[in-house]
């Protein structure tokens, strides 16, 4: 096989994806049919549960509150992480001072941070948001520090020679060089944060997708669990494809 040759899909790409999805549902339906078990409901049962939760249950409000927590903790994590990462990338001494803390935080399990936040700040909304943000911040710092170290000094010299003011120097000469790193941490951020939010809800909140999952777990309602899961995955895929990806395309449009 010639690896240098690009794969020729023609127009079959999207159809192939659709077929792949249909195949998955088919395999699932088949497995459920054979197993005939309460713990493996088929697509029909899950769709029924989805409809029930949507119309009579709290699916929409649970999705909304969980999404709210994702957005707020994401914003906090990005703002703090980007700021600290840049400063650590620029200031050698501060970098050495904080590097140990950073490694420590990177290695504390998410669960421990969540438990400690609930213990110290109570079972509150603020504690939940702090717990999620704290789990993501070290990650953003590491990526942004790397980006800051890779900044092209030659472009900053242009700003200096032409007496460009500080504000423009930062926003037009410096920050755009970090956009690829900001986008990278945003992408991994969204993926990581929504998973942690569910755990936080499961452990200490009385609403949201994570809480409802724990309720269905105790009731052994697997169809409900799968219905909630699929709904939430759909929402997060929409955020990824409908919000994050277009923003990235716009910011990076100058690339060849």
């Amino acid at each position: 096989m010639n690896l240098a040759q690009p794969l020729r899909l023609g127009n079959s790409g999207p159809w192939l994806r659709l077929f792949s999805a249909a195949l998955l549902v088919l395999v699932w339906a088949l497995a459920a049919e054979i197993a005939q078990s309460r713990v493996l409901p088929g697509p029909g049962a899950v769709a029924e549960s989805f409809y029930y939760n949507l119309v009579d249950g709290r699916l929409l409000s649970d999705l909304a509150i969980t999404l709210f927590r994702v957005v707020v903790s994401f914003a906090i994590a990005m703002i703090i992480g980007v700021a600290v990462g840049i400063v650590m990338g620029l200031r050698k001494r501060l970098d050495i001072l904080l590097d140990g803390w950073l490694i420590l935080f990177l290695n504390i399990p998410a669960l421990v941070i969540i438990i400690l936040c609930y213990v110290w700040f109570g079972l509150t909304e603020v504690a939940a948001i702090i717990a999620v943000s704290l789990n993501k911040i070290p990650n953003v710092i590491v990526i942004m520090r790397e980006g800051t170290r890779a900044v092209d000094r030659e472009l900053l010299q242009v700003a200096q020679v032409f007496h460009v003011d500080r504000q423009r120097r930062f926003f037009k000469f410096f920050l755009p060089q970090l956009y690829p790193y900001i986008m990278a941490s945003a992408r991994t951020g969204v993926a990581l944060i929504w998973k942690i939010v569910l755990v936080v809800e499961l452990l200490g909140r009385s609403n949201g997708v994570g809480f409802q999952l724990s309720v269905y777990f105790s009731l052994f309602d697997i169809a409900g669990i799968l219905a909630y899961t699929l709904a939430f995955v759909a929402v997060m895929m929409f955020v990824e494809l409908g919000v994050v990806a277009p923003i990235e395309r716009h910011i990076m449009r100058w690339r060849k």
Binding site: E154, L155, Q157, V158, K172, F173, P176, Y179, W254, R255
Partner: peptide, 8 residues
């Protein structure tokens, strides 16, 4: 080298 800002 020209040192232009590629994003502008």
């Amino acid at each position: 080298t020209p040192r232009l800002l590629p994003w502008l």
